[in-house]
Design a protein around this nucleic acid. Structure first.
Lengths: 207, 207, 207, 207
DNA sequence: TATGAATGAGACTTCATTCAT
DNA sequence: GATGAATGAAGTCTCATTCAT
């Protein structure tokens, strides 16, 4: 790992990662060329290999490091929240807002994470699992609080929640149709989930 | 269109499509070689180009034709259903069951459809939209029947539903962990959605 | 060689040759596809191989047979001519007029004959040599008549004459600029050659 | 443009061009393989694409750059000449001598320039036109000097001259028959042209 | 004789990666 | 550390030719 001044190795490494996000999000991993990322980062082709093992490693590093930031960010916002429903709302809003704060990153995650999960040899998306863990935590808390159904299958539910949010993001990314605007999607998906996860009389609470 | 005996063009074309599903689902579109698909189909490399314009066209044809079958299949099963909730259950079950009936196809759709939507020039996934349409129809009917919330945002909801199902499929495909078995996932996702989509007293109906 | 009725094999063979001229002249030998010629002839791809050994043979046959017609034609016209100068004029006019009567053929000869002379294995352009022979004959006759210089190097001169005519044809074919119209070129090239080939006072005769 | 030391980019580019001339002249453009040229240049296949856009570009660059040298060379030699006839002689001799100084180049020009003029999309053989321009200049000067016929059609004549020279070159290239030796051809073609271009009594001057 | 689907060798070109400077 | 020219393996696709019908 090349690091010297705070302004040197780490900086260059970051420029490369940011450029990679931009390029990957525009053209997809397989259609992006290492030399393109180099040019966009303002470094030489070879320099990329000083910071990353290879093109795959660039994608994986990007996932782990940027997802790490996302996980840390959402955890912090949630810690300020109230009950599980409130936290769920925060999680949803946070996810959808990423679309605007970190558009490129989200696009890469959406499209390439799937590929990687299947096709990159020996890659476990650690940070992605942590992100799912954040959802689990909320769901478990909701069950403990008696807010969510006691029979709620947390493993399945967290995937469903992630899947729904992810597809809504993709839809907006592809169409930029205002009817899928993050704020609109957030509200509706919250309503569905609040209704579907809650125990007894969710309608009273959701309303 | 090369076709002669009943045993000729259409058959060969189908063998190629089936092989493509197998290979694409195993290694992903970009990691699959045309010559591999040829070998798996028992035809020469060049033969593939008699039936498909190029590698992209092979993927697109696969999407459209196989998704066409899926859409037709689910429409038929739904037409036999009762109210919107019953139809939703049928839709969910049907989707998750595809994982076993058409594992390869589903895997390709999940991973590659995203790529394609973004990166294949000039490709509109017609049949995929029809599939979403099937969900819309159910949701609209549910609203008319007074079963679903009148304020339900159908556009958003159908995407959320598809996303949830899709992610659950992917999870099972990747892990084959029984805790995500189609039957388990189906039941839970139905419970969530039934709760979240319904008007007034969903708990009574879902229970 | 397949022949049956006058309307059968020979006819089909001719259709293929005519189509080949058209296609070769439009796109060049290497850029033309056998299947294209088949389509243009209204026969199946395989049929071409009943009449010609291969693609090269198609080009060579075309040269020999069509050049044969050209040679026969110009010989006949010349036999009606007067002295060597008159015959030269006929030859020149005839050559340039071919541009309009047999445009495609001339274009193929111009562009492809060169290739063939160099690169087709074991090909001697017999009919092309006969065409040159026609020029030699005129030049020799002119020398015998005392009309042309006695020191005229016939071998070189006939090539120079052919080269000049050929380039003028190519120029017109490529530009269709009226300043290179066959009639204009004919007149000028005749004036040059008449002046340059003749003995003593060519200007008197050429005027 | 890859260039560093004096021993680097430009040198490698030139080695490739020289190899291309050799290979193209031996086998023709279409029968030459890029990998063959790479081997003959002592570089890797991919290296060719660092210096040339593609195979077509290699041919075109070769034309333009080498013809540029030829044009510059002949212009310089001519500038030392006397009247138009003397210059014409220089031009002719120079052209025929290229056969020995630059055999490969001339062969490529002869055979492939024609193809290219017709079939390479969007290619204007700029340097070839300049070469023709050199002839025009001589002819115009001859007319001004009263040496050449005032009614001489310069456009046609320059093409005829080029065509005659070109065909004589090709003949020698193909046969290496001493009766077409450059020195022999030069003398004869000069005699023909001197006779044919001149005004009034060319025989007096040519004699 | 005629067909045209099938073949498969091989061409061009790309691009991740290396390494001498 | 940084560079970027060079590499060369490998992929997509074409097309002349064949042969079962």
């Amino acid at each position: 790992m090349p690091r010297r001044g705070p302004n040197n190795g780490a900086d260059k490494r970051n420029r490369i990662l940011r450029a990679a996000i931009r390029i990957f999000s525009q053209k997809g991993f397989f259609n992006s060329k290492v030399s393109e990322i180099a040019r966009a980062s303002g470094v030489a082709d070879g320099t990329i290999y000083l910071y990353f093992k290879n093109k795959d490693d660039l994608l994986i590093s990007l996932f782990e490091e940027k997802m790490g930031d996302v996980v840390a960010g959402v955890r912090q916002r949630i810690s300020a929240g109230g009950d599980a429903l409130a936290k769920l709302r925060i999680f949803i809003d946070n996810h959808m807002e990423l679309l605007e704060r970190e558009a490129g990153l989200i696009e890469v995650l959406q499209v390439e994470l799937r590929q990687s999960k299947k096709f990159l040899k020996d890659y476990t998306p650690v940070k992605f699992f942590e992100y799912l863990e954040v959802i689990s935590d909320i769901l478990e808390e909701g069950k403990r609080e008696g807010l969510f159904r006691p029979d709620l299958n947390v493993s399945v539910a967290r995937r469903a929640i992630f899947g729904a949010l992810d597809e809504l993001c993709l839809t907006y990314v592809l169409s930029h149709n205002p009817k899928y605007h993050p704020s609109v999607s957030s509200a509706e998906i919250y309503r569905i989930l609040a209704g579907g996860l809650c125990a007894a009389k969710p309608s009273a609470q959701a309303g």
